[in-house]
């Protein structure tokens, strides 16, 4: 029931933002923001109810994992929107949230296979939440990077078309992308650290060279390089935008691809 309400609100938000993209009416944007906020509240309530009923966070299968990803994207966008007031990002975030959420609803709800002890642990909770928030923030960075490249092309090529008028300044897009990366990288780092601790507690070793662990390390290194280059070499703008997009592609592969194509102890989170 809560799922339906959430889905409807996310849909309304995505539609409002799409209309905003074309018609540039301030009220559409405000409506999109409001619907997303309401959808997020309904979503949170649903998660809380499920968690209380079962006693642990709902990420037993792909359905629940995707749902949590949608929740994290919505949360990070709402925060960014509140903090940086970049309205146009909703055009990217609202459909992304909707896509992840509706996709999750289409996937059958499989029962958990692991013993409950695996899930009912503070480190597990911390690991999942920080990783997902980090990934959502890095999804925003990817979005900002895409918008940056669109806008930069418009200015460089002197073609002042559809996006030129609608997108904010390069400086804003770059700044927001960088802020997202800093936040995402921080959360990702915390997520990896809590993951290591959790692994130590459950399997009595920090690292088991599980493909997911390796790919997480690779993603982490990409973002570390990005931040390092920016701080030391002043890598900004176009290159930074491309790297943010590439980083997120690797991250997406880590999140889903690894589970589909490789084996490992993260596999059960994306069963479908």
């Amino acid at each position: 029931m809560m799922d339906i309400l959430t889905a409807v609100l996310y849909l309304a938000s995505a539609v409002a933002y799409m209309l905003y993209l074309f018609f540039q009416k301030e009220r559409l944007q405000e409506a999109g923001y409001l619907f997303l906020g309401a959808g997020f509240l309904a979503h949170t309530l649903g998660l809380v109810v499920v968690s209380v009923q079962t006693g642990y966070l709902p990420i037993h299968n792909l359905r629940e994992t995707l749902g949590l990803a949608a929740w994290a994207v919505a949360l990070v966008f709402l925060f960014l929107r509140f903090q940086y007031r970049i309205k146009i990002m909703g055009v990217y975030a609202a459909p992304l949230t909707l896509l992840a959420f509706t996709a999750s609803m289409r996937i059958p709800d499989l029962p958990p296979t692991q013993p409950e002890a695996v899930y009912a642990n503070f480190w597990f909770f911390a690991h999942v939440i920080t990783i997902f928030l980090g990934e959502a923030a890095l999804a925003m960075a990817c979005g900002a990077g895409i918008l940056y490249i669109l806008q930069e092309n418009a200015i460089k090529e002197k073609k002042r078309g559809f996006f030129y008028r609608r997108l904010p300044s390069l400086e804003q897009l770059d700044g927001m992308g960088y802020a997202s990366i800093i936040a995402g990288f921080t959360a990702l780092t915390l997520g990896l650290v809590t993951g290591l601790l959790y692994s130590k507690i459950i399997w009595h070793r920090f690292i088991s060279w599980d493909p997911k662990e390796v790919w997480s390390g690779i993603s982490w290194v990409i973002y570390a390089v990005l931040i390092h280059e920016r701080l030391v070499g002043g890598m900004r703008g176009r290159k930074a935008a491309w790297l943010a997009i590439a980083g997120f592609a690797v991250l997406l592969f880590t999140l889903f691809g690894v589970n589909f194509f490789m084996d490992g102890h993260h596999g059960e989170f994306t069963r479908f």
Binding site: Q151, I155, P168, E171
Partner: peptide, 9 residues
């Protein structure tokens, strides 16, 4: 206007 699309403020 162009400067503002590049630099923001």
């Amino acid at each position: 206007e162009l400067a503002r699309k590049i630099f923001g403020s």
